[in-house]
Design a protein around this nucleic acid. Structure first.
Lengths: 216, 216
DNA sequence: GTATGTGAAGCACTTCACAGCT
DNA sequence: AGCTGTGAAGTGCTTCACATAC
């Protein structure tokens, strides 16, 4: 359910910090597009609704990117964060599940500009196998491992019904995939070296429903 | 960027706890469907990959739902959590943005079974206004407030391009909406009595990309 | 014997506050 | 004068461990 707790010692940054970096990246990109060249942690924090101290502390896990008395060069900081996150390279994605949701994901135009490219699609339904989805042929799941490795896929997006989702996850894990974006409404069980993030709008709505019943 | 920190004193449960309840709900539902009648925090924790102490502590904010020496009655606990979250009632949803993503959301079959019903749709594009999407007529945004109140909508899902997303959020807030599920890739600014959760698969992928570059 | 509920302890993240640089 | 980078302090969430109940 969780990401593992942050290993503070001398190792890497806590996972919460890693999760904030993409937010910083996004806002810095907007600032850069608006022609802003220098920004202080104070102002960046105001945009992100985060304290300036948190931004400075977060960045300090990775180096010293600012100039005292001045602030951060937006372009430079953008580059550094992109490198920290390993976003220089384009990453290939395999989508498992070519139903309604899977096809929406394959057709989603937001991935490519960020360097994520869906390069193969799988489904277990014989009626779908061999058909096209978003310009890609839908593969049988039986030779998933070979295809993922041939296509140099490092990330799998899971968009299958909940019933067999864990089985599919097991197969994805057996295919040596270490990063999974899970749209299936289950608590995925994976080994500790596999990273999963979940996308589930229903859970988000349910937790906010709480505030509809108590506030007011 | 965050949910506000948990007000510990005597007030409600911390927000992190509220966010976990839907996970508990989901797993309990699966257990119930599998015919499980009683479960211990130990076993439930194993399913959810959470410690048993966390489950007990979380539930203790709301009452005492278990039987010592035995565990929790699955059906009963389900009911209690549904009530805590305010999920007895069906909640109406307004979707703002009838583009590709908005229409995918409108057609998403996962909301209705959980008591969330999309009852109106808005867009600012004159070419879309008056057209149908998922059985609903697409409304102009100018009379959003009236329509939302007439339709008794308490939740808005935002699926608009980033450029004008904050303006749309402002208009949604002015319409007295207190709960927003935001699919737009921006850091939404809202008053403190408005609750926002974000869905952004790109951020999730970017943070996991970090692990692709450092691990192994 | 088994499992809950909960104060107390532990731990990790956030914020403070200031030395140091520009 | 202004802002970063960071040890230290503060805060809140998680885990422990045991009294209590079945």
């Amino acid at each position: 359910m969780h990401t593992r707790p942050g290993m503070t010692g001398l190792a890497g940054a806590p996972e919460v910090v890693i999760e904030r970096l993409p937010h910083y990246l996004r806002t810095l990109t907007q600032l850069n597009n608006s022609g802003v060249e220098i920004i202080s942690s104070q102002h960046l924090g105001a945009e992100l609704q985060v304290t300036s101290a948190q931004i400075r502390k977060d960045l300090s896990y990775f180096g010293r990117f600012g100039k005292q008395g001045r602030g951060y060069n937006v372009r430079h900081l953008l580059d550094r964060i992109r490198h920290i996150l390993g976003l220089q390279t384009t990453r290939n994605i395999g989508v498992v599940g070519a139903g309604r949701l899977g096809r929406a994901i394959i057709g989603y135009p937001g991935f490519a500009p960020e360097g994520f490219k869906v390069t193969c699609v799988f489904d277990s339904n014989p009626r779908l196998i061999g058909q096209m989805a978003g310009g890609l042929m839908i593969h049988d799941m039986s030779n998933m491992k070979e295809i993922l490795s041939r296509e140099k896929v490092q990330i799998v997006i899971l968009a299958v019904p909940p019933d067999n989702a864990q089985d599919v996850i097991d197969q994805v894990v057996r295919s040596s995939i270490k990063v999974i974006l899970n749209y299936a409404p289950i608590a995925a069980h994976v080994p500790s070296d596999v990273h999963v993030r979940n996308v589930d709008p229903v859970l988000a709505l349910q937790s906010m429903a709480y505030h509809l019943s108590i506030d007011s």
